[in-house]
């Protein structure tokens, strides 16, 4: 019997080891996204104390609880307004919303579009596994047409949201989509999103082998990763209207939007400085508006 020397997890300092093992199923893609996020944070964020993570409810909603950061597991669908309040009350903080497609886009859809519209200074990472997994595999607003879920046993009859298009049309300044297979690209996208001022959005397509993949006969987690590898089409800068997702069809990935537009905080600051006593506002601004140091990703 040979002993393999223990290898330290390179992102261990960002994880709450005492809370392991996590709740996610074998083959689930959420852990992969967390690994990428941790690497992006190591790479790009110098001040971890001021990096705050906010999740909603659901499988991805548990991410906040596993990261060794100030972290908030809020109510279903409401991570974005919680994060908006947190950021407005202390602009020094870097606030990341990390949640699932059902949480962010169905029950939280109204908050999503309004945060993008006002260009709120938050990064939103949406893990899209095409179904409500925590509650046993019900369909949601991202489930592809004709796919099967427990609440749609004969197949979905509704058109799903195209999240990159939704985000861009509402005003997001950074929009990217990758699959759980694309760990390097995903990490880079997360890093770029963290470096962005304003509403940045990264969608990650992940397998849910226990529920979605199984019911729709899409294979194991590993099969699905192979499928992602073979059926993703990388189209950086493509018109987001071309990013619709259909069952068993190719998935368009890439960085679609990276533009500059004044963020909510910048707009508020500019407005108040122009209409109010400039000195008082500048004094307040100096105290409150220092952003935390960020580094661009190497290479």
């Amino acid at each position: 019997m040979s002993m393999t020397p223990a290898v330290e997890n390179p992102v261990e300092q960002l994880l709450r080891s005492e809370r392991m093992p996590h709740i996610w199923c074998p083959g689930c893609g959420i852990g992969t996204t967390v690994n990428c996020f941790a690497r992006a944070v190591e790479e790009c964020v110098s001040d971890l104390d001021n990096l705050i993570i906010v999740s909603g409810i659901g499988c991805t909603g548990r991410v906040a609880g596993y990261l060794e950061l100030d972290s908030f597991h809020t109510t279903h669908g409401r991570a974005i307004p919680f994060a908006t309040g947190l950021k407005l009350a202390n602009p020094k903080l870097k606030v990341v919303v990390y949640s699932g497609d059902g949480d962010l886009i169905a029950i939280g859809g109204n908050h999503f579009i309004h945060a993008a519209r006002r260009n709120a200074d938050i990064t939103v990472i949406c893990v899209n596994n095409f179904n409500y997994a925590m509650t046993g595999g019900q369909i949601g607003p991202t489930t592809p047409l004709d796919a099967v879920g427990t609440t749609s046993p004969y197949g979905v009859c509704e058109r799903p949201f195209n999240l990159p298009f939704l985000a861009e049309s509402c005003g997001a300044v950074y929009v990217a989509r990758w699959t759980a297979y694309h760990v390097r690209q995903m990490t880079r996208a997360m890093c770029e999103a963290l470096n962005k001022r304003g509403f940045s959005f990264v969608e990650v397509i992940t397998p849910c082998p226990t529920l979605y993949e199984r019911r729709n006969r899409l294979g194991s987690g590993l099969d699905r990763m192979q499928w992602f590898k073979e059926n993703s089409v990388i189209k950086n800068g493509v018109d987001t209207r071309e990013c619709d997702i259909a069952l068993r069809q190719k998935i368009v990935c890439g960085k679609f939007v990276d533009v500059d537009r004044p963020s909510l905080l910048e707009m508020v600051e500019a407005k108040m400085a122009s209409v109010l006593h400039r000195r008082r506002w500048e004094r307040m601004s100096r105290e409150q508006q220092k952003p935390i140091a960020m580094r661009p990703m190497k290479g």
Partner: peptide, 12 residues
């Protein structure tokens, strides 16, 4: 949204 934005702000 209002009723949870205030709670984010309190934690800040």
């Amino acid at each position: 949204a209002s009723s949870i934005a205030i709670q984010g702000a309190v934690w800040a």
